[in-house]
Design a protein around this nucleic acid. Structure first.
Lengths: 211, 211
DNA sequence: GGACAAACCGACCGGTCGGTTAGTACAATG
DNA sequence: CATTGTACTAACCGACCGGTCGGTTTGTCC
C-alpha cells in the first residue's frame, strides 16, 4: 500500500465523521474528543491532520459545498416547457437536499447563523449559486412568455427557493402537525406548490380581474 | 424599596440578558460566565435565581413563547375580505417576527434544531399555534369561495408560514444578493407574494385550462 | 539494515466549563 | 438585640475544553 493511501483514508474518515457530528449538533456543541472517539482515532491524530478545530470545520463545510455545487450542475439544464423546467428544478433541488441532508444541514446552519468568517462566505456562495441559477431559469421562462411579465424574477426565485428550504428544514416538525399529508413526501409537496404557483389560488371562473 | 422588588428586578435583568445572548449565539455557545458578565452580576447569583443553565434557558424560551403567543392574539381576527385577511395575517406575522426578533430567533432556533426535551416542545407549541390559526383562516376563506376548493388548506398554510419564516431568517443574506429590492422591506415582500398567491403566475389571457 | 518521514498515540498543558461553598450585607420579625 | 431569611459575592471544585509534546510504530528509499 502506498504511504499516502493509508493517510488519505484516515483523513477522509475523520472528515466524514466530523461532518456528521457538526451537521447534527453544530460547531460549538461538538468537541474534538467526541469526534476522535466517534472516528476511532486519537485526538492527537486529528490535530496531526488538521491544524485546528476551525480548520476541520472549514474543510467539512468546504466538502459539503463542493458536493452541493457539483450536484447542482446536473440540475439546471432540464427539458420540457417552462413549468416542467421549474418543477424539475424544485424537485431535483429538494431531492438533492434530502439525499445529502448532512451536507445541506451543515450549509444551511452556516447560512442562517450569520457569524462572520470564511465559513459564512463559503456557505453563502453555495446559496448564491443556487439562487442565481434559479433566477436565470425564471427570467428565461418569463422571456418565453410562460410567466407574467410584471413579475420580478428575483422575487419569484426567492419564493421558490424559500419554499424548498423551509420544507427541508421543517420537515421533522411538519410531520407531526395535524392534517399534513405531504410531511414525508417531497414530490407531493412540490406538486401542490406548482398547482398554486401555476394556476394561482383564484377559482378559474372568476380569474379575469379583481384586485 | 420592598425586598422582593429588588429581587425580581435582578431576576428579570438576568433573564433579559440571557435571552439576548442565547438568541444571538445559541445555548452551547454561551457560558454562564458570559451571561453573568453581560448582566453585571456574579455567576453565583445567577445560580441563586436559576437552578441550572438549562432552567435559565427554558425560562428564556418560555418568556419568548409567551410574548409570541400574546401578540398572535391581536393578529388573527382581521377584517376585510379573504385576501385582505390573509395579507393582513402575513404582514402582521412578519412584522411581529422582526419587532420581537430576539424572541423569534430564540424560538426558531429551537424549532429547527430538533433535539428532544422540554425546550423543543415549548417552541413547537408556538409554531403549531401559529400554524393552526392560519389553517383556520384559510379554511374559512375557502368556505367563503375565495379560494379554489380543490386546494388543501393545510398545504396553503404551510406555504404562507414558510414564506414568512424563510424571509425572516434569510433576510440578512437576501439583502446581499443581486437584484433583491425587497431585502429590508417586509411589506413589499408580502405584496409581491400576494400578487402571485392571488392571481397565480399564468398570464391572464391563457388562464383557462392547461395542466 | 540504517536513515528518514509520516502516522499515530498516551499523557499532559493552561484555561474554561457548569456548578458549589462559605461567607457578607441587610431588611424584616420576635 | 438576637434571629432568620434572602440577595449577593469571591473563591473554589472536578470535569472537560482545544491543543501540545515526547515517543513509538510503520512504510519507503538507498
Amino acid at each position: 500500500m502506498p504511504p499516502s493511501s493509508r493517510n488519505e483514508e484516515t483523513l477522509h474518515h475523520i472528515l466524514d465523521t466530523a461532518m456528521d457530528l457538526f451537521a447534527r449538533d453544530g460547531f460549538d456543541s461538538i468537541s474534538m474528543s467526541a469526534i476522535a472517539e466517534a472516528a476511532g482515532v486519537s485526538k492527537a491524530n486529528i490535530f496531526h491532520h488538521f491544524k485546528s478545530k476551525d480548520e476541520l470545520y472549514i474543510q467539512s463545510l468546504r466538502r459539503a459545498c463542493d458536493a452541493s455545487h457539483s450536484s447542482l450542475e446536473a440540475m439546471a439544464n432540464g427539458e420540457g416547457d417552462a413549468w416542467q423546467r421549474i418543477e424539475g428544478f424544485l424537485r431535483a433541488h429538494l431531492h438533492q437536499m434530502f439525499q445529502q441532508s448532512r451536507d445541506s444541514r451543515l450549509i444551511l446552519r452556516e447560512v442562517v447563523e450569520n457569524r462572520p468568517g470564511t465559513a459564512q462566505r463559503l456557505a453563502q456562495d453555495v446559496f448564491r449559486n443556487n439562487f442565481n441559477r434559479l433566477v436565470a431559469i425564471i427570467a428565461e421562462c418569463q422571456r418565453s412568455g410562460a410567466l407574467r411579465s410584471t413579475l420580478d424574477p428575483v422575487f419569484v426565485s426567492t419564493l421558490l427557493l424559500g419554499t424548498n428550504v423551509f420544507f427541508f428544514q421543517s420537515q421533522e416538525i411538519l410531520q407531526h402537525l395535524e392534517g399534513v399529508d405531504f410531511g414525508n413526501d417531497p414530490d407531493r409537496y412540490v406538486r401542490q406548490f406548482m398547482d398554486i404557483f401555476q394556476h394561482g389560488t383564484l377559482p378559474i371562473e372568476n380569474s379575469q380581474e379583481e384586485v
